[in-house]
Amino acid sequence: MARRTEVADAAIATLAREGMRGLTHRAVDRTAGLPEGSTSYYFRTRNALLKAVVERLAEVDAAEIPALPNGDLDAFADAAARLVHAWLTIGRDRQLARYELTLEATRRPELREVLVTAGAKVRGMVADRLGAAGVAEPDSRAADFVALVDGLVFDQIAGAGDRELTPARLRAVLRALLAAIGGMASDPDRL
């Protein structure tokens, strides 16, 4: 793993654990087990470090999205349910970091620009899969799907929800969501 990637991953873990206030170059050095000053060598400013975190999150997302199949919305819903469940469990730190950055981006236009670009790439990949499955207006529907999934994830990560999204429950919710956005026949027996 390249050192810049290692530092970005440590920054994600630090951000998830400590929040925006706790994200310092020294804290990232400690998380990564690197000598003091290592993070600032690779990312001189806080803005550079934040940008690196957004780019790393987008890179990991872009690597995961191809696991969502083309052409079959049932298979897409099943794979999406597995992916979202992984985000809620083993990928929880990434989601916490993403939400921290999303809020910070409301005050930092330069960070918002990077976040919007990264999000557009993910929505584009989802749109490709929805389009291949015959969903009308795949770009618009992908934006809806991603936003609604993001809401489900946030609800679970923030602890606002009163139910656990098990893999089976996620599969049912995502199938219903795909039916609602025009991609699947709504069959209550399948949910």
Rank of each mutant, 00 (worst) to 15 (best):
A62Q: 11
V7A: 13
H25Y: 11
A80D: 03
D189R: 14
M1F: 06
A77I: 07
E59K: 06
R129F: 08
A75P: 04
K51G: 10
R94C: 10
L165N: 01
S140I: 11
G124K: 05
G37V: 07
V116L: 11
A158D: 14
I65P: 00
T39N: 08
G37R: 07
H85K: 03
V28N: 03
T24F: 07
A67L: 13
R190A: 11
T39A: 08
A80Y: 00
V53Q: 02
Q95M: 15
E137C: 02
R3L: 15
G151R: 12
K121E: 15
A147Y: 08
F43K: 03
A52F: 11
P167N: 04
I12R: 08
I65A: 00
A136K: 05
L148R: 08
A168S: 14
D162V: 15
D78T: 15
A143N: 04
V173K: 02
G71F: 07
D9H: 02
K51R: 15
D78S: 15
D29C: 02
G91C: 11
P109L: 05
E18C: 03
A8R: 06
D128R: 08
A32S: 09
V7N: 10
A62P: 00
T45H: 04
K121D: 09
V153R: 03
T89R: 00
V135M: 06
E55T: 09
A8N: 01
D29E: 12
P69A: 08
L68S: 00
E137M: 04
A147I: 09
E137D: 15
S40I: 13
R129G: 06
T14K: 01
G37H: 06
L165A: 10
R3P: 07
A118R: 06
